[in-house]
Design a protein around this nucleic acid. Structure first.
Length: 295
DNA sequence: GTGGGATGGGCAA
DNA sequence: TGCCCCTCCCACA
């Protein structure tokens, strides 16, 4: 499930298994054979995540840049690696454990310059302690593009994907079609803080959960399947807050999910955001208009 | 068994 | 905007 939380979690786990010693590197599938041959036996110094990008720093100023894309997947374990399952692009094993990578969009050797170019392309990452949201907030406040597009744009904010986009906007009761510049600074800052909190939670759990316990049918114990989201993948089901039917639409070439009532307006923050939203009479959803098309 | 969709993104047009 | 990449998994037969 490659959104930012997946990548940071992978970095943390693999750091524990592999960083700080010489490693064996190979490419059972063969498509990274050249890079693997160059790196095999070198020391793996560090593993760092930025948004959805991962960098493996090897001795000798060489990095491996990995981006999982939609299909990419890591497997990890302690001890000796098992026989590869499926097409394994890169396999790294060390004294303590191993990891395999399959189906990535990117798995490339890069030098320091190329690494910097990649990092310069992406916006601040809410999961990084050194992240500074000011530029992202300013950019959103200047933009006529819908906030549902801006949140997915990795140049604006790095690490948010289609699940977090939908869930963040629902939690903030903001219409995905609201232009960035229609939002108040405080609203955008609140989105950033909520993103950081949800991403951290996802990084720790290894799973995205955005519903508050009180909004789940079973508030206690483990979060059950089907209760972890407010709107994502819930087309046709009742909104957990107001009971309206969740809708889907296409935005930024991806499927967007939203509640047409709770998220009916761009809306400045007000008491209705916190309290009276259930009392409001259902309005016509003001989405669409060129950017969102009902489906 | 099989086909479609999926948490992304780069690229051509 | 739409296509491609390229892998896994689930719903459906």
């Amino acid at each position: 499930m490659p959104e930012g939380h997946t990548i940071h979690r992978a970095a943390r786990i693999q750091r524990g298994l592999l960083a700080g010693g010489a490693v064996r590197v190979d490419s059972p599938q063969g498509r990274f054979a050249h890079g693997a041959a160059l790196l095999d036996g070198r020391e793996l110094l560090a593993i760092d995540a930025y948004g959805k990008h991962l960098f493996y720093a090897f001795a000798g100023d060489v990095w491996v840049h990995v981006h999982l894309g939609l299909f990419g997947k890591f497997r990890t374990g302690t001890g000796e690696p098992p026989p590869p399952r499926g097409a394994v692009r890169m396999r790294v094993s060390g004294e303590r454990g191993w990891m395999t990578l399959s189906g990535p969009t990117a798995c490339d050797l890069v030098d320091d310059n190329e690494r910097r170019l990649i990092l310069d392309r992406i916006g601040p990452d809410p999961l990084r302690e050194d992240a500074r949201p000011a530029a992202a907030i300013a950019r959103i406040m200047r933009s006529a593009a819908p906030i549902g597009v801006l949140l997915m744009d990795q140049r604006v904010v790095a690490g948010i994907g289609n699940v977090y986009r939908a869930e963040l906007l629902f939690r903030a009761r903001i219409s995905p079609a609201a232009p960035g510049r229609s939002l108040a600074r405080a609203q955008i800052l609140a989105l950033w803080k909520d993103a950081r909190m949800l991403l951290r939670d996802g990084e720790e759990r290894g799973r995205i959960v955005t519903t508050r316990p009180a909004d789940r049918p079973h508030p206690r114990g483990a979060v059950r399947r089907g209760e972890q989201y407010y709107v994502y993948h819930r087309t046709g089901q009742p909104c957990r807050i107001c009971g309206s039917t969740i809708e889907r639409a296409a935005m930024a070439a991806r499927t967007l999910y939203f509640c047409p009532v709770c998220q009916s307006e761009p809306s400045r923050p007000s008491s209705r955001t916190i309290a009276g939203m259930r009392a409001r009479s259902p309005k016509k959803p003001r989405v669409a208009k060129g950017h969102v098309t009902a489906s």
